[in-house]
Nucleic acid binder design. Structure first.
Lengths: 326, 326
DNA sequence: ATGAAAGCGCTAACAG
DNA sequence: CTGTTAGCGCTTTCAT
């Protein structure tokens, strides 16, 4: 393991000069700087992070806490955050909280000294606790908003309007929404946005309680969704939508012939179904990147900002005009 | 930030005793131990990882390098590894190499001082370079094998036999395999195993080159696969399988009526299709756990071991007897 | 512009 | 069984 001393010895300067060359190049004469840099390259010297951290307090790492890394939604987010962190010279520590608030709490506490800040995705903490956390540690929220805390959220209202307007434009007047977990912040936000958009477009919308927000839950809700006497169904997410599709296929119900189907999130699974799924989603990788940028800005002392990521409708084959327009 | 000094002061012992209580409890009298532990709890003292690392060389973290975290296969693996690492008191640094060998190389080098060891999943490095890495850093391989390097691989041969025997048992005599990227280690291993199993069961098998190993690639290969005049198709992975299903649906080809379909990996997408996909897979989360255990054992000085994870066939609705048995 | 020296929080000899 | 002490590799005053 090569250290500052090796580099210093190789080019006949003190260790302080080596350190300066790396941290504050302008405080070193050009001649020495180049000599030092050459030595650094020659020895493939890499500063010891632990030592830097111990001395300066900076860890060079940030954490990303997600409820479930196996969920494609969070995986996509993670991918973007990872790339952004790397390109900025930061390490990314990914924590899968397994949707468990206790794990989330504990990991946040134990990571505190190891990171410069964290990104909390769809946190399970309530507003009070979250606000507390935000005052004692640098953090940015994804899918949550809190005063004075930087956050990045998806434009669910825009998404709901795009979805409803698309359906209304095709001639649908009665649609069902197969929802997600009632207590989830995203679900509440999504359902509210949908009601708002529906009222605006004079479309009748009813919510059908989903079971789990995955294919199994969708399959289980297949009959109930159609029982609402609707010509189109919007699902909480793409996985639920694919479950609905599978459930309907078993019953001989065809999409979009018998019923149109629209998903949320536009994850890669939307392209895997027959028919391919019309879905409204955001560039999740970009969302992860933006969050990293926001966190780094915060660490840099800038004022917190709340940014909204646009959602766009990807029209595929699962939506069409209803059989008998109202 | 509370330190050993605070704890020591609170219970009137030296900092060494505090350290000992935490690192080697048996070297401290029971009375002091309890006093110290009480103080630790009272102050919610958490040792500074950087300091421990700097002094002892141990970082308390391991890295997991995956080609693509957004791929459900790797995401499942990551989830298992994450949980296992946490339960053993280790941090897990997840690195998404974006299938780029240069990134893989660079990250491995820059992480060296920050971790105690690493798990390389489906590494893109060639055998020579990989062997070099393995001698200079503690690591365990997933989906690769190398002499004297601990590894965990899936039992692809067992999987191939289970798949082929299942199909043969239903009466299929000619099957096609829609493969993955030809240069990938998994693809080569899988195709070889399939040929082996097919010969053994006197089943005729042909390989159809896939495009990308995802739904799009599957959809693109849909016609070609059927053009082989086969009654069953095995896909490189579930995503390709769902793509095939979608492609066939567009052409009016039905599974399992017209052709049986069998996937690989048994990821969550297998349950999302209509019909649900018969697939042969392994418990990937367990695989991640096993890899963590193996790495920790290696760090602990134990001899490297190569472990194979069994794969099991999940029979769902996409396979059935052929229309006209041969 | 450069060097000497102190010390971040902790562990591991070494004494006692 | 417990305390004292010397650093781990680095950054950062403070001199020069």
């Amino acid at each position: 393991m090569t250290t500052v001393h090796d580099v210093a010895a190789l080019c006949g300067v003190s260790i302080a000069t080596v350190s300066r060359t790396l941290r504050a190049p302008h405080r070193v004469s050009e001649a020495t700087r180049e000599r030092v840099l050459a030595a650094v390259r020659e020895l493939d010297y890499r500063p010891n992070r632990a030592a830097i951290n111990l001395r300066s307090g900076r860890t060079g790492a940030i954490a990303l806490m997600v409820p479930d890394i196996a969920n494609p939604y969070f995986a996509a987010l993670t991918k973007g955050a990872q790339a952004a962190a790397r390109s900025r010279g930061y390490g990314l520590v990914v924590v899968d909280t397994a949707e468990d608030v206790a794990v989330e709490r504990e990991e946040m506490a134990s990571l505190r000294s190891e990171i410069d800040g964290m990104i909390l995705v769809s946190s399970r903490l309530d507003d009070t606790e979250l606000a507390e956390v935000a005052t004692s540690a640098r953090c940015v929220l994804i899918n949550r908003v809190l005063p004075d805390v930087p956050s990045v959220t998806l434009d669910e209202l825009g998404a709901a309007r795009a979805a409803i307007d698309h359906l209304a434009g095709l001639g649908h007047r009665r649609v069902a929404y197969v929802g997600g977990p009632e207590r989830s912040w995203s679900e509440q936000r999504r359902w509210r946005a949908l009601q708002d958009a529906a009222a605006r477009a004079r479309v009748h919308i009813r919510r059908v309680g989903g079971e789990t927000p995955d294919a199994r839950g969708g399959r289980a809700a297949a009959s109930r969704a159609r029982a609402q006497g609707v010509s189109a169904v919007i699902a909480y997410n793409d996985q639920v939508a694919l479950g609905l599709l599978a459930g309907w296929a078993e019953q001989g119900v065809r999409a979009p012939g018998d019923v149109s189907l629209l998903g949320f999130d536009d994850t890669f699974v939307a392209e895997m179904s027959a028919p391919p799924l019309t879905s409204v989603g955001a560039d999740l990788a970009a969302c992860g990147e933006v969050a990293v940028t926001a966190l780094l800005a915060l660490i840099d002392g800038q004022a917190p900002e709340a940014v909204s990521i646009p959602m766009t409708l990807a029209v595929r084959a699962s939506t069409a005009a209803p059989k008998e327009p109202a």
